[in-house]
Amino acid sequence: MSSSAPLVTVEGLVKHFPGPRAGQVIHAVNGVSFAMTAGETVGLVGESGSGKSTIGRAVVKLITPTSGKIVFDGQDVSKTSPQAARPLRDRMQIVFQDPYGALNPRMTVGNLIGELLKLHTELDREARAVRVREIADQVRLSAELLTRFPHELSGGQLQRVCIARAIATRPKLIVLDEPTSSLDLSVRAGILELLRDLQRDTGVAMLFISHDLDTVRLVSHRILVLYLGMVVEEGPSAKVFEHPVHPYTQSLLSAHLPPDPDERLARHVLSGEVPSAVRLPSGCPFAPRCPIAMPVCSQARPAMEMPATGHQVACVRVKDGSYRLPDSARRNVGDSVSHARG
């Protein structure tokens, strides 16, 4: 994308998991490619089963991909096992969705943050304590909390501890897997602000995974929309949100409810739910639910196309520009409520 060499390059990433029954395979990620540069925030958006968390875990080497290539910081780490990736971990970190679960309940906050320094630096005990205080300050966590145990802290404070752990070794990449989903609205804003400030101050690249479209839009420079483990649309955040091209992106955005009663939405309510990843649809993954699918859609996987908007979309309708969902599928929910409201 930019002139500098990418920090992370993912090419044709595939991850299969064993299915619930013997012989079954869950196709979690099915050929995903993207690149991230330093200081960039890339948003991964998708519903359940879209493979967004799997991609995040593969990038920070918590799982080994079935196939595909991952290059991190100039090093091919595709086949590196989670244990063998230990020397890389000071440069790549992850923050999980549930801060209550992600912290060892038997360790104090200070030790939880200090653990990263213990593992990756030569600092002695005192130097670590000093640095832990600095980090706590950076994530706006008061120093008196350092001697507490996780169960004594609120959800927002715990997520700050997780972020403190993630930035302790000044990494180049942080994967944020739904970091605000389990938090209350007013606490969320504080965490998002903290992440923005950290990126501004340290230039860390962030892979932001979320199902919350508003949040992703707010924090991301670039967005990948995923469906059944495939990228269906990719582009700069503003472009994807203002001019969604792929029918799935269109319906996803229209299904979303902005917290503003005045905002009227054209609704393309989809029927059905995301199909099982055990038996993938042939061709375009979205074809079975797509209101404007054509026979060709279920025959071959569509290639990435560049519509006039300048981003990338995997849809055969891009070529002739006939990708707009028809008006017949539109519906304005706000009308019925406002009618009754009057």
Binding site: Q83, R89, Q93, I94, F96, Q97, D98, G101, N104, L119
Partner: peptide, 12 residues
């Protein structure tokens, strides 16, 4: 999650 977090932190 905390075990996964421990792996991600680089624990042997």
């Amino acid at each position: 999650p905390f075990v996964e977090a421990a792996v991600a932190a680089g624990n042997p």
